[in-house]
Design a protein around this nucleic acid. Structure first.
Length: 192
DNA sequence: CGACCGATCGTCT
DNA sequence: GACGATCGGTCGA
């Protein structure tokens, strides 16, 4: 299931809430690898009201509130009762940028619009209300326009903000497009 | 540029 | 009652 996180790079996330389409290409993900993964909310088979969605068959959204203010958007990828998920950490905005700016309370387009999981979800209008919702609905879905990144452009690193996960904190489960300015972390190529 | 810190609340113990 | 799968502002160099 971990490899699916890399396969999602280049795919499109589309939402059409309130009739307004917004779309972004996935440029950074993290895999959360089932009940064996100490960084996952489902570690050890934990099943709570919040994490129950992770045990759904793949193809639904798992959205939860982080630090009391950020809604983090994941794609559930396992079979029923096998809680795998992929966190969407960054998007490259393609459509509906005006609407994204409005949701992010910004006036100028810059790379921070969809950089980082909290920002990406907010720009797309995704919140905890959508947790459990199908990603094949008319309001929220994944799409593939045939675009792919060259394999050379992709790298894997340890995940962000999971230091508590002991040895699993070091696993290379974060996948990103090298040199893409929307990827989170230190801004690398912001000058022109 | 890097380091630090405050915001803010649902969830689980 | 403690603690985040974060973000953005501020401070000092």
């Amino acid at each position: 299931m971990v490899e699916l996180a890399q396969a999602l790079l280049g795919k499109l996330v589309v939402t059409k809430f309130e009739g307004i389409p917004t779309m972004g290409r996935i440029v950074e993900t993290e895999a959360y690898n089932g009940i064996a993964d100490k960084a996952s909310h489902a570690y050890g088979g934990r099943r709570t009201a919040r994490t129950e969605v992770m045990y759904s068959p793949g193809g639904v959204a798992y959205v939860y509130l982080c630090y009391g203010m950020h809604h983090l958007f994941n794609i559930v990828t396992g079979k029923r009762d096998v809680p795998h998920a992929v966190l969407i950490r960054a998007l490259e905005p393609l459509e509906g940028i005006e609407k994204m700016l409005q949701r992010r309370n910004k006036t100028q387009l810059d790379f921070s619009l969809t950089k980082g999981p909290g920002s990406a979800a907010q720009a797309m209008g995704i919140g905890t209300f959508h947790s459990g919702m199908s990603l094949q609905s008319s309001e929220m879905y994944l799409a593939d326009d045939g675009f792919t990144f060259s394999h050379d452009a992709l790298i894997a690193t340890p995940r962000i903000g999971v230091d508590y996960a002991q040895e699993d904190a070091l696993l290379p489960y974060r996948f990103l497009v090298k040199a893409n300015p929307y990827v989170s972390g230190k801004s690398q190529q912001n000058r022109g």
